[in-house]
Deep mutational scan, measured.
Amino acid sequence: MTEYKLVVVGAGGVGKSALTIQLIQNHFVDEYDPTIEDSYRKQVVIDGETCLLDILDTAGQEEYSAMRDQYMRTGEGFLCVFAINNTKSFEDIHHYREQIKRVKDSEDVPMVLVGNKCDLPSRTVDTKQAQDLARSYGIPFIETSAKTRQGVDDAFYTLVREIRKHKEKMSKDGKKKKKKSKTKCVIM
C-alpha cells in the first residue's frame, strides 16, 4: 500500500485542523484551538488504489514558523489553505509557496490551493482571484467548507493525484537520464 505524506499549511484560523478532522473523523470542530502540530493517518481508496494518507496539520501562528522547514522537508505534497473571508490569509499563500519551493529546492512541488469556509456569506476573496492565482502557479484550486464537508475529500484526493503525477514524471525523467548515460565512448 502506497503511503502519501501530505502537509496542510496556511495562516492561523483558516480551518486547516477543521478540514483535516472532517476528512479523518467526519465531524466539524467549530471551536478554535490553535494547533502546534498534529499528525493523522487514514486509509482510503483513490482511483481504485488503496493508500495510506499521513497528514500533518501544522501551526499557522507566526511564533511556530521555525518548525516549518522541518515538516516541509518531509512532506510530499501540500494543501495551501486560505479562508475566503480573510484576504490576508490569501496573500500569505505566496509566502508559504515560496518557502516550500526553497526548502524542497524545487520549482515543481505537488500543491493544491484550497479556499476554505465557502459556506460563509462574508467572502472577501473572489473565486476568480483564487483561480487566477492557482493557474499562475500551475496547481489545482478547490473551494471547501469544513463545516458542510463540501470539497473536503476532493481537496485531499486531488493532492494525492498531483503527487502521483509528480512521481510518474520524475521516474520518466530518471529513465531518460539513465538511457543517456548508457551511451559509451570508444577510443581507438
Rank of each mutant, 00 (worst) to 15 (best):
P34Q: 05
I55D: 00
Q43L: 08
E49I: 07
D38S: 05
P34W: 06
D30F: 10
H27V: 10
L56S: 04
A11E: 09
K5N: 13
N26T: 08
N26Y: 09
K42H: 10
A11D: 08
D54L: 04
Y40F: 07
T20R: 02
A11T: 09
Y64G: 02
T58C: 05
K16G: 07
Q22D: 15
L52F: 13
K16D: 01
D38P: 02
D33G: 02
I55F: 08
D33W: 05
Q25K: 08
D33F: 04
V44S: 13
V29P: 13
V7E: 05
G13H: 09
P34T: 06
I46G: 13
K42R: 10
Q43S: 13
V14A: 12
E37V: 04
V14D: 08
L19F: 10
S39C: 15
D47G: 11
D38Q: 03
E37A: 02
D30R: 13
R41L: 11
Y40N: 02
L19E: 15
Q22F: 06
D47C: 06
A11N: 07
F28M: 08
G12C: 08
V7P: 04
G60L: 01
K16N: 05
V7L: 04
T20I: 06
D33C: 03
I55M: 10
Q22Y: 05
E62S: 07
T58M: 02
D30E: 12
L6R: 01
V9A: 07
D33R: 02
D38A: 04
P34S: 07
L23E: 15
E3Y: 07
L56H: 03
G48W: 05
Y40P: 01
V7M: 07
E31A: 10
E3S: 10
A59G: 12
Q43T: 12
L56A: 03
L19V: 11
V9N: 05
V7F: 06
T2Q: 15
V14R: 06
A11S: 09
Q61G: 11
G12A: 13
V14T: 12
L23V: 09
Q43P: 12
Q61S: 14
H27K: 10
N26R: 09
R41W: 09
F28G: 04
G48C: 05
E49M: 07
V9C: 14
Y4F: 14
Y64V: 03
C51E: 11
T20V: 09
I21D: 15
L53D: 04
Q22V: 04
Q43G: 12
E3C: 09
I46Y: 11
P34M: 07
K16S: 13
G60C: 03
L23T: 15
A11Y: 08
D54R: 06
L52M: 15
I46V: 14
V29F: 09
L56V: 14
H27Q: 14
V7G: 04
P34A: 10
C51R: 09
G13V: 11
I36W: 01
Q22E: 12
V14L: 10
V44I: 13
V29K: 06
H27I: 11
L19H: 13
T2R: 14
V44N: 10
F28S: 05
E62H: 07
E63K: 08
P34E: 08
E31R: 07
N26F: 06
Y64P: 01
S17E: 00
R41F: 11
L19K: 14
D38T: 02
G15M: 00
A59T: 08
N26I: 05
I21Q: 15
I46Q: 11
G12H: 07
L52D: 15
V8D: 02
I24Q: 14
I24R: 08
K16Q: 02
V7Q: 04
G10T: 00
E37D: 04
G12T: 10
G15T: 00
K16H: 04
D30V: 10
S17W: 03
D33I: 03
Q25C: 07
Q43V: 11
G13S: 13
P34L: 05
T58K: 02
L19W: 05
Y32L: 06
R41H: 13
I21E: 15
T50P: 15
S39P: 01
L19Q: 14
Q25F: 04
S17Q: 00
K42V: 09
I46K: 12
G10K: 00
G10H: 00
C51M: 10
D38R: 02
G12S: 11
E62P: 11
E49T: 11
K16P: 00
G10A: 07
A59L: 00
A18I: 06
H27A: 15
V44K: 11
Y64I: 02
G48A: 08
V8N: 04
L52Q: 15
T35I: 00
L53C: 10
K5D: 08
Y4V: 12
D54C: 04
H27T: 14
E62D: 11
I46N: 13
V8Q: 04
G13P: 14
Y4T: 11
V45N: 14
G13L: 12
V45R: 12
D30H: 14
C51V: 15
I21H: 15
L19C: 12
A11P: 08
T50M: 12
V9T: 05
G60A: 01
T58P: 03
N26C: 08
L53I: 14
V29Y: 08
L56K: 07
Q22N: 14
C51A: 09
T58N: 01
G10C: 06
K16M: 04
A11R: 06
V8L: 09
V8T: 05
T20Q: 06
L23A: 13
G13C: 13
V29H: 11
G12Q: 11
L53Y: 11
L56P: 02
Y40T: 02
Y32A: 06
L19N: 15
G48R: 09
I21V: 14
A59R: 01
T50S: 10
R41I: 09
V45K: 15
K16L: 01
I21Y: 15
Q43K: 14
I21K: 13
E62I: 07
N26V: 05
T20G: 07
E49W: 05
K5T: 05
L53K: 06
E3W: 06
G48N: 10
T35D: 00
I24D: 15
Q61E: 15
L56D: 03
E37Q: 04
E62M: 06
Y32V: 05
D57I: 02
D54K: 07
T20F: 02
R41K: 13
D30W: 08
V9Q: 04
I24E: 14
L6M: 10
I24M: 13
D30T: 13
S39W: 04
L23M: 13
G48S: 09
L23C: 13
L52P: 15
V14F: 09
P34D: 05
D54S: 08
L6H: 02
G10D: 02
H27P: 05
T20W: 01
L52N: 15
K42P: 11
I24Y: 07
H27C: 14
